[in-house]
Design a protein around this nucleic acid. Structure first.
Lengths: 112, 112
DNA sequence: ATTTTATACCTAAGAAAATTTTGTATTTAG
DNA sequence: CTAAATACAAAATTTTCTTAGGTATAAAAT
């Protein structure tokens, strides 16, 4: 088992959190940002990230704009007006989840 | 989206953590313990828990003993000798993951 | 007395979500 | 001129949980 295992379910919320902090980001940038923040411990695979981005776009949470930078195509994603709401909700729920996980992991041994 | 969404992937590690702290527990007890710890915010469904317990038993991580208590059958689970190792690994990885999530969410780690 | 709630275990069908694998294409470094 | 980094994406697969059931006993409520 690796840390990646635990990522399941959190991916959308992580993307939304990053997009709350940055007006717009492109896919590759998101993978690198997570790598930076976690010192390489957490790696988003592209095969997981892009379907998530597309899903969020289809749901109207994200909108996109294409740009040509240094001859390469980039697809920037940003929160829609509606998306800001949902981002806040998702991030707040993830925070609560982290807090609960913390409680579970910090329990003192009980007498069995 | 609810907190349950984020649980994906963490279930085994949570079970292993609880079994590190308690010599033996039975399925229903585990669901109630998580409910207690998280003040009802996180609910393990039996449909997810029992298959996980059976999987861990099949992998040799857990062993079982049956007991009849107050006319009801209980199946206690505990870590095997091998299981203690794997529990430590899983829990440590989950801790690292939580710590990384906190970094992404800009939360302050509550306990190193 | 009888119904409901709590306790206690379990399975199966299906959905949800990420992974693996593979593919395309350009730029930069060796 | 080859490999690595940048940048996107689809298809098939696997893992994992949810939903929805099923069985059974004891205690509490009506």
């Amino acid at each position: 088992m690796q840390q990646q295992t635990y990522l399941k379910g959190c991916l959308s919320a992580i993307v939304l959190q990053l997009l709350q902090e940055n007006k717009r980001m492109y896919g590759y940038e998101i993978t690198q940002r997570v790598r930076e923040i976690t010192a390489g411990e957490l790696l988003l695979t592209e095969g997981a990230l892009y379907p998530t981005l597309h899903k969020l776009e289809a749901e109207g949470v994200l909108s996109t704009e294409n740009a040509l930078v240094d001859g390469r195509n980039r697809k920037y994603y940003k929160l829609t007006e509606n998306g800001h709401q949902q981002a806040q909700t998702a991030v707040s729920e993830l925070s609560d989840f982290v807090s609960n996980l913390q409680k579970i992991l910090n329990l003192k041994p009980s007498l069995g």
